[in-house]
Design a protein around this nucleic acid. Structure first.
Length: 201
DNA sequence: TTGAGGATTCTC
DNA sequence: AGAATCCTCAAA
């Protein structure tokens, strides 16, 4: 017997990010050190057609990974503090990707809590793009990692759970352009999505 | 070389 | 509501 789960194939990612994004819900982000978390919130970012995408103004050293082959991890640094993780989608030179915004920790919780001392509850471990990356230990050294070959021990796999049939679809968060495109998907009524405050609405 | 801004998080 | 914090990019 080998690994019970195998990485999603390259072809899964070789589509428009708006097609890939909702299907990444309920998939599992895994690290070779035992950390695993179920993806519950994502956003799609297209290439030149999408003013909100990092790739909109063309290839730069920062976003070069987005213009590479699909199925790789694009990790970016922002606000001077946080890392964001994306799955590169579409074709080479398209500059498309899906931002992994939130996940439900499944295993390796001890390592996640160690990486995120600020998290008071387990639901705070990965309920946001910066939190997710920090909990999973993803930083610049993982930019360009191949999720299909697992060349750096990080991948996205399926445990057989299908994507939700009725995900919540809404505008993307934290952007200033193309703010009305409904390119954010999250699992309905899930306690680990971003933006939740304990008892506020 | 410089200035402006950012796919956020945490605390007050 | 505001601070933290620094990389990235384009312009000069």
């Amino acid at each position: 017997m080998g690994e019970p789960w195998s990485p999603l194939p390259r072809e899964f990612y070789r589509r428009h990010p708006t097609a890939v994004a909702p299907e990444l819900l309920n998939k599992i982000l895994v690290r070779a050190d035992g950390r695993a978390a179920r993806i519950v919130e994502v956003e799609a970012y297209a290439g030149s057609e999408d003013p909100a995408a990092h790739s909109h103004r063309g290839k730069t050293p920062r976003n070069a990974t987005m213009f590479g082959p699909p199925g790789h991890l694009y990790v970016y640094f922002s606000y001077g503090i946080h890392w964001g993780s994306n799955a590169v989608c579409g074709d080479i030179d398209e500059g498309a990707g899906v931002l992994l915004r939130a996940a439900e920790p499944l295993s390796g919780l001890d390592l996640m809590r160690e990486a995120r001392a600020a998290a008071k509850r387990d639901r705070d471990l990965a309920s946001g793009p910066g939190k997710l990356s920090q909990a999973m230990g993803l930083d610049r050294s993982f930019d360009g990692a191949d999720l299909v070959t697992m060349d750096r021990g990080v991948s996205i796999v399926s445990d057989g759970t299908p994507p939700p049939v009725d995900p919540v679809v809404s505008p993307r968060i934290g952007i200033s352009k193309a703010v009305d495109l409904p390119w954010r998907w999250h699992v309905r009524d899930h306690g680990h999505v971003s933006g939740k405050r304990s008892t506020r609405t």
